[in-house]
């Protein structure tokens, strides 16, 4: 006999949230692409939002839902601005590879220039 009380409580929502967060991490770590990195971070965002909404429902405090609303609109704004940054980066570099983003590093004179540290 399966214990159904587990599925009636809040713990199943935590599990769903963690699945969403992990799937975001999976995309972030397997693809070395600027555009997909932004998407992955947004997915992680959503998992955390679900945790907020869960706590808000089970502890009877509407502030959690309020925070989710705020963070969803912040996510929308950051997503749009991130996409514009990616567009301009692609115009400059003609590539979306994350490993090519080494502009901030100290410039090494030609000679011993290998990519690894």
């Amino acid at each position: 006999m399966i214990n159904y009380s587990f599925f009636a409580g809040e713990k199943v929502f935590y599990l769903i949230a963690s699945i969403i967060i992990l799937s975001g991490f999976y995309l972030l770590f397997t693809k070395k692409n600027l555009l997909l990195a932004i998407l992955a971070l947004e997915i992680v965002f959503n998992g955390i939002n679900l945790m907020f909404a869960t706590v808000s429902f089970y502890y009877g405090d509407l502030t959690g839902q309020m925070i989710v609303l705020l963070s969803l609109s912040v996510a929308a704004a950051s997503f749009a601005i991130g996409l514009i940054l990616v567009l301009n980066y692609y115009r400059l570099k003609r590539s979306l590879n994350i490993e090519g983003m080494t502009e901030l590093r100290e410039r090494i004179e030609d000679g011993d220039r290998d990519g690894n540290d």
């Binding site: 070395k32 692409n33 692609y90 590539s95």
Partner: peptide, 14 residues
């Protein structure tokens, strides 16, 4: 955006 870029860009996989 996914359609704006050439498909080779997304094949870089670690």
């Amino acid at each position: 955006f996914l359609y704006l870029y050439p498909e080779e860009e997304f094949k870089i996989q670690d």
